[in-house]
Design a protein around this nucleic acid. Sequence first.
DNA 1: GTCTCATTCGATACACTGTATTGCTGCGTT
DNA 2: AACGCAGCAATACAGTGTATCGAATGAGAC
Lengths: 230, 230
Amino acid sequence: MTVWDRPAPPSRPVPLDRERIVAAAIALADEGGLEAVSLRKVAARLDAGPMRLYGYISTKDELFDLMVDEVQAEILPDGQPGDWREALRVLAHRTRQAALRHEWLADLLGGRPALGPNGFAVAEATLAALDGLADVDTVMRAVETVSAYVTGAIRREIANLRAERATGLSEREWQRANGPHVTRMLATGRFPALAKAVYDGTDVDAESSFATGLEWVLDAVAAKLTRPPA
Amino acid sequence: MTVWDRPAPPSRPVPLDRERIVAAAIALADEGGLEAVSLRKVAARLDAGPMRLYGYISTKDELFDLMVDEVQAEILPDGQPGDWREALRVLAHRTRQAALRHEWLADLLGGRPALGPNGFAVAEATLAALDGLADVDTVMRAVETVSAYVTGAIRREIANLRAERATGLSEREWQRANGPHVTRMLATGRFPALAKAVYDGTDVDAESSFATGLEWVLDAVAAKLTRPPA
DNA sequence: GTCTCATTCGATACACTGTATTGCTGCGTT
DNA sequence: AACGCAGCAATACAGTGTATCGAATGAGAC
């Protein structure tokens, strides 16, 4: 008996099943971030007392797991995949889009093993794309590498996005003009390569940055798939 | 005036500067995880009232930033780097080792831009390794790609490590034998590729898994560096 | 129709959190 | 010697996750 299959006890006043609880939590998180999700507020949104939730959920972390799994349903592509590369690409971009829709996902991504049905489905889709193209271990390594990149890239993108929002300025402009502390540090001359990157670098948009890095990683995977395992 | 340079006000009863505060917080986090870090406990460890900390730190998130920056000092290599590839490899492995020493780092990695002096130093070391090997934008993309992989891989590794510890079993054995929920899900036949990976996959240790994925990503980067920008 | 029992809900309670505010205390200066 | 002020501690507040428990409300048995 684990998180994902718990008998839904009936109730009269308002049906209130796990789906409704998770939906309310997601709505709260979408509006105010993860820290805006409290059991009290979730319950209040469902016209229930806080303790009522514990009939359906046994801890707040479990609620977070359920939220992640729910959002992972959005990641699964609609149509059937093309070749393996296209399949992985689509999965990666859909993950990113889900994180942009639900920024709190970035805080949770990779933080815990995704053991829900939709998490499994995403893992299945990823593995299935590479099935048969190499031995099991190589495929596994490929999946892990790609998803590590995806997780890390999304996390950084959301982090930067928040920082920009907090200062009201674009990351680049902020480093270049304002951000007195950063400017001063760069001016010390102790970070010449960094300074060059900041001042001479082109300001590319996040999506194409994500896409470029992803293609690089996919290139690397492609090279290992054609060749037999080391 | 930002987080990283604040005049240290003197005090009599016990010196108590920011370094001591950060050290105490890190000690607490090493022992009991991030959630064990509360301003009250940090202060208690320094024989001070909770409010005393606010003379040196303006919010708890700032304390977290300082903790991350402090640990990033451990990442910087001692000697001078070899070629770019060796340099990036060492930085990646040292980051991973730091995260294994301080597991809470995984929770914070990539969650916020690293703007502290040591964070800058790590960024500088990374960029310096690739300096001149390609145009600035390509170098930037390379750095972002590698560090996205590193962040994501470390995060997953720590997450799995915790899950193993929680169940007392190795991830693989757990999926294979115990973990009734997982076993049942796999038994549904809805996840054939996943089932194959779980049952037929070799159980490789985390370090070589990390290393292998890293080498793949470095291969990808190498291919882009020799070739001029797209 | 009435009684009983079990279940489920809500209220209360507890230990704790981050932080604002307030007043004291002891030092340095005039 | 008196004063002012900086820095610290105590108090306070709003909020958190969750355990416990009393009451009510439902169904089932006679």
